[in-house]
């Protein structure tokens, strides 16, 4: 009985692992094909439509601005409050701006943007492609000689690659505003002093690190969500599962990738 349980466990583990490898392969294939259409589509007389890309940029980027702005502002303010509380014990409140500004630009701006976009657009992309898969719209594209990857995935990928760094700049800025408000209220720090301290504390490398991460997060969200959408099956329940899986995987991938990035860039 014990041996059978162990065997069942290893079988399930093996199946999960094989499924993971398959998912990774599917994602890699989607990335390769999307980049091919983005870069060479025009030469093949099958361009990725600018109109579709702009529509996606609106969906994944512009419409996410209010949520990202509010969350980043709140996050900046919270980090400032926690920072003041911790640093006060050491009499080091003057180091607040340098510490929080670096953390926000390197980590939290990109992280908040990634998580918000994954939750908003990761689910929407998976649901949209999954529904199209189930109603044979994806098959209809194929039989019309239109590559579903070019038509559906490439505009999303291009939009996320462009919009994620821009949204991260917005998130960084809003977090700074949040921090500036708390610094003004708690430390009586003037705005000019705050800006001066931020300017001294940050290096271009800090900003680029956050932007590079957000670019990678954008690619991951597009591929994970599209892959889950294409693999959705078994009706409404399957679609719900694909949508949930898409969001969970996107967020996990973002956090783990962020950690790996940080490990190699800092240590």
């Amino acid at each position: 009985m014990h041996a059978m349980g162990l065997r069942g466990f290893t079988e399930r583990l093996g199946r999960r692992f094989a499924g993971g490898v398959e998912d990774f392969g599917h994602g890699a294939m989607l990335l390769g094909e999307s980049l091919f259409w983005i870069l060479l589509g025009r030469w093949w007389q099958q361009p990725v439509r600018v109109r579709a890309m702009v529509a996606e940029m609106m969906q994944v980027g512009v419409l996410a601005i209010p949520v990202i702005a509010i969350l980043a502002f709140a996050n900046g303010a919270m980090m400032a409050m926690q920072g003041i509380y911790t640093l006060r014990d050491f009499g080091a409140e003057s180091q607040l701006v340098a510490g929080v500004a670096t953390a926000v630009t390197r980590e939290f701006g990109a992280l908040i943007t990634g998580i918000v976009v994954a939750a908003r657009s990761g689910s929407a992309i998976a649901a949209r492609i999954g529904t199209m898969q189930m109603t044979q719209e994806v098959d209809a594209l194929r039989v019309m000689g239109i590559s579903p990857v070019r038509y559906l995935v490439a505009p999303i990928l291009a939009a996320l690659m462009l919009m994620m760094p821009l949204l991260t700049v917005l998130a960084d800025s809003m977090a700074m505003v949040g921090m500036a408000v708390i610094s003004a209220l708690q430390l009586n720090m003037g705005f000019a002093t705050f800006v001066d301290q931020v300017w001294r504390a940050l290096t271009p490398g800090d900003v680029w690190q956050g932007l590079a991460k957000s670019f990678i997060f954008g690619v991951m969200i597009a591929l994970i969500a599209a892959s889950n959408g294409f693999n959705a099956q078994h009706g409404a329940q399957g679609l719900g599962r694909a949508t949930t899986r898409s969001v969970v995987l996107c967020i996990c991938a973002i956090v783990v990738t962020d950690m790996i990035f940080t490990f190699f860039l800092i240590l």
Binding site: W44, Q46, M132, T135, Q136, A140, V143, M144, G145, S147
Partner: peptide, 23 residues
């Protein structure tokens, strides 16, 4: 290949059971 498929598909039309129109 991809190009040959595109040429071939232009000569074919398919009417799916549920229509498969883009919503």
């Amino acid at each position: 290949g991809v190009r040959q498929w595109v040429v071939l598909r232009k000569k074919m039309g398919v009417a799916f059971q549920g229509g498969a129109l883009f919503n």
